[in-house]
Every structure is written in structure tokens, then in C-alpha cells.
Design a protein around this nucleic acid. Structure first.
Lengths: 99, 99
DNA sequence: CAACTTGCTATGAAAAAGATAGCATGAATC
DNA sequence: GATTCATGCTATCTTTTTCATAGCAAGTTG
């Protein structure tokens, strides 16, 4: 269950998605802007993702590792599903604050 | 980005996974035990997932809605990927507490 | 009516996330 | 060679979320 645990943290899926769609490596700040987050959370997720060997960092910036790239199709599918789903329920009550 | 936001909360993926693999509807308590969580978080996630119309609840218990079922293949794929990945790095440093 | 199941809510403590400021290092510019 | 700029963070504080546990109301069972 470890992966679902890792991915179930805020910004984990988002960071992977941003890196999946980026054509070039992203700097820390570019990634922060893309994922619309703050440096502390981003840095925590990056540490975890690098420890998990899903993300690499070199001079050019952050990019998916080979293993990370093998996750890309799934993430893109998930995102595509989300798009369809979002369109299908446009106008319905917001889900993000169901309380 | 709403779906990735929803899924990026603890137990969201886990609950969907448990419901994906269950052959019958699960009661609140069965789901709580399966997902190894506490009632407050479970209840919040269920409210959100029901608002998102991914999960239904009736006399028999909790189950995936039709939309939720269309997510099942993706979740199972994700889980399969996670298994492979976990095996490929067995013995490496723990990722879940990279701090 | 006593025991059990189900679907929660309440509460308090701990952990994570969010927001913002700022620092060290290195490269480029004046 | 001082100054500005980009990068990759860390520190700190506040807010939100999660965790852990107890317990209650309603319905069912014996």
C-alpha cells in the first residue's frame, strides 16, 4: 500500500502530472509555480519522490526518472478520466468542499 | 484539477481501491477496517466521494457508483504498477518517511 | 428488554499543509 | 568587483487535516 500512501499526499499526483507533461526539466521554482504550491510542501514531496526514485534532479532541473516515466501513461489516463468526469458534472455541487 | 485534488487526500485512493476489489457492498465499519482508518476521516472521504458521485450508499452498504466503476480499471492498474514497483525496490530505503 | 450492528458525531492531540520571509551559492551584468 | 538575478532551498508561524478513541441514536435479533 506504500505507493497509494505516497500518492495520497497533497501535491504528489500533481507534481508527477506536471513533470509528465513538461517537455523539459523544470526548476524548483518553475515546478512550484506549475503545481501552484509553496516551497515547503513541494520540497517535502520532492524528497519523497526522489527517495522513491520516481523523480531525478540534475543541472537541468527536476524530471521523471525512468520508473517515473513508466507511471506517466497512468497519470495521463487518470487526468483524462478526470477531465471527462469534470465535464460530465459541470454545474453540479462542488466536490472539493463536501463537508 | 479537482479530481487530483480529491484523490490527493488521505484514504481517497484507498477507499476507492477497497471498493474496487470488494465483490459486495461494504458497511461503514467493514470499509473502515479494510482501509485501516478511523471513522472521522472515512466519513469525510465518503461524503466527498458521494458528493462527487463516485460512491453510492444504500441498504447493502457502500459501493462504487457507475462513474466510480469506470475508474476501477485505472485504480487496479495503479495498484498493479505499485506492486511491481514495490518489488523492484524491496530492501531500499523506506519512502514513506523520507524527511 | 438486553445485546448487537450500523452509521455515524464529538473531542482533544498530533501531524501535515499553507503562506510568507529570507538566506546561501553561483552565474551574469554593470 | 560590486550588484543584480536565478536557483534551491530552510525557518517560522498559522491553519487545516488527520489520528485515536469514546460514545450515542436507531434499528434488528434473540
Amino acid at each position: 500500500m506504500a505507493l497509494l500512501d505516497l500518492l495520497g499526499r497533497r501535491m504528489a499526483l500533481r507534481v508527477l502530472w506536471e513533470l509528465s507533461r513538461a517537455e523539459e526539466p523544470l526548476t524548483f521554482r518553475a515546478l512550484q509555480a506549475a503545481a501552484e504550491t509553496n516551497p515547503s510542501v513541494l520540497n517535502r514531496r520532492l524528497k519523497e519522490l526522489r527517495t522513491a526514485r520516481l523523480v531525478d534532479h540534475d543541472d537541468g532541473g527536476y524530471r521523471l526518472s525512468e520508473a517515473g516515466q513508466s507511471l506517466t501513461p497512468l497519470i495521463l489516463q487518470l487526468h483524462a478520466w478526470a477531465d471527462t468526469w469534470a465535464r460530465s458534472r459541470a454545474g453540479s455541487a462542488s466536490l472539493t468542499r463536501a463537508r
